[in-house]
Design a protein around this nucleic acid. Structure first.
Lengths: 254, 254
DNA sequence: ATTGTTATTGTCAAGTTGATAATAACAATC
DNA sequence: GATTGTTATTATCAACTTGACAATAACAAT
């Protein structure tokens, strides 16, 4: 089939009329919008939270949706994700450390009832202190923006196919935590092993014995030398030493 | 920012004029084409091959490119990938077993010099017998289509950003072979441990000791009871028993 | 019958895991 | 100032996995 990467000059007879027209003039391309949707995670009190916005317009008026928006003409999807994160949630990237990576692209023809919208979903991790999460400010056309606990969420209540996207984000995060130190993106740059273990508890919904957790994870971490005092014995601070965990964890129940 | 998912009725003053127009009338959306590109792998004689097409039109005339094409108005990206696989390479899916999964989306603004093209790349694995690979037939606007050995390829010679896409495909395959039985998608439904080991050799570019390979992989496989005779001792046939390898391999050099 | 080749099983030391206990370092309380 | 409660970190040990390599077995070809 013809594609825009191919010059129209040599279009052959086997190309359909519609294809020919499509490649002949950009204005005749079927109208497709390309957007990004964001699965933004943070952990508070050992509970995994996701940033959602309440829709202020039909369709799905009043329902929770993932923040997101158009990919602009001069940016790629990753840049659009960063921009929309600020615009749709009001997060200040000057004060908050974020990790963004592409998740998957959702392209079912009628995923948006109004027109063809292809969405490049992204996973966003917000580094938090474990005890609070920044307030969100709704963007342009959202009624409000709010953190909601992922594991208590009624996925069927989400707008569009956002339940699928959220599930993909959760699975990506939980999966990558088996073989990378991605969980450290949800805690400050320097963190204790307990803080990191709380991330695992929140995401995997299972407790890991502290002793074994320390033994295994320590190999991927670098101690800063400093200690912090909470209740109990003082805990050492670490930074990420290696992106990889080797050999990987296997999640209880995998 | 406004997005097509939001009704235009409530567009607020904070929306830019361009955004408003964009959401007001689909025809005013910036022209974006959504395509799929395919990284099609097969293994012949323990060498990993990728299906490439020679471009028959500018830009990049005469250069090798990945097969691919438009996502049609009534199909999602996965369906487009299946369709384009047949149209661009002439592969007969009636005779050949294929595995297709989404890889990543490439959206750099000028990745195609002519217009905005967002491409959803897919990984395609073709089950082969290990000794031959089906001939390819060039589609509409390609000069020819051919299998080329991945590890001998000059990546810089590929058209567009297809070197990046191919690298992503190879990394996905090599990575998933650590913790899933995806390698079995490159051999017939029933296969010997040697045949499967040849896939690992071809993709990882490293030899795995036969004894240890058998010991570890057997846990994920189901013996059919049948045996096949080549040179040497007869080998048992297996099918995939579990999608997962647990605990995972760690690739030599990871 | 012998040789060459490959499949499969066995062996063993070194390393990893899961379960659980022991030790240590504090704060808060008595 | 000793005791208690709490948490961090290290230790222990049996079960399991790995990597290296050897041994055995099953054929075809000579």
């Amino acid at each position: 089939m013809n594609r825009p990467e191919d010059g129209v000059e040599i279009s052959t007879g086997s190309t359909t009329e519609a294809d020919f027209l499509a490649s002949y003039d950009p204005a005749n391309f079927p109208a497709v919008a390309v957007t990004v949707d964001l699965v933004v995670f943070a952990v508070v009190n050992k509970v995994l939270q996701v940033a959602l916005v309440e829709r202020g317009a039909p369709p799905f008026l009043g329902r929770w949706a993932l923040p997101g928006g158009f990919v602009g003409p001069a940016e790629d999807a990753l840049a659009a994700a960063h921009r929309e994160l600020v615009e749709e949630t009001g997060l200040d990237l000057g004060t908050h450390r974020v990790f963004v990576e592409q998740l998957a692209t959702f392209s079912a023809p009628h995923r948006d009832p109004r027109m063809r919208v292809v969405s490049v979903a992204h996973l966003v991790l917000l580094a938090g202190n474990g005890t609070s999460v920044p307030d969100l400010m709704a963007g342009t056309d959202a009624a409000r923006a709010q953190w909601l606990p992922v594991h208590e969420l009624d996925l069927t209540s989400l707008a569009f196919d956002h339940a699928d996207i959220l599930a993909a984000g959760l699975e990506r995060l939980a999966g990558k935590m088996e073989y990378t130190t991605i969980a450290a993106q949800l805690v400050p740059k320097e963190f204790t092993l307990s803080a990191l273990r709380d991330i695992y508890t929140a995401v995997w919904q299972t407790d890991l014995p502290a002793g074994n957790f320390t033994r295994k994870m320590r190999a991927s971490l670098t101690p800063t030398g400093a200690k912090v005092q909470a209740v109990g014995a003082p805990a050492s601070l670490f930074t990420v030493g290696s992106e990889w965990i080797s050999p990987p964890w296997s999640r209880p129940g995998s």
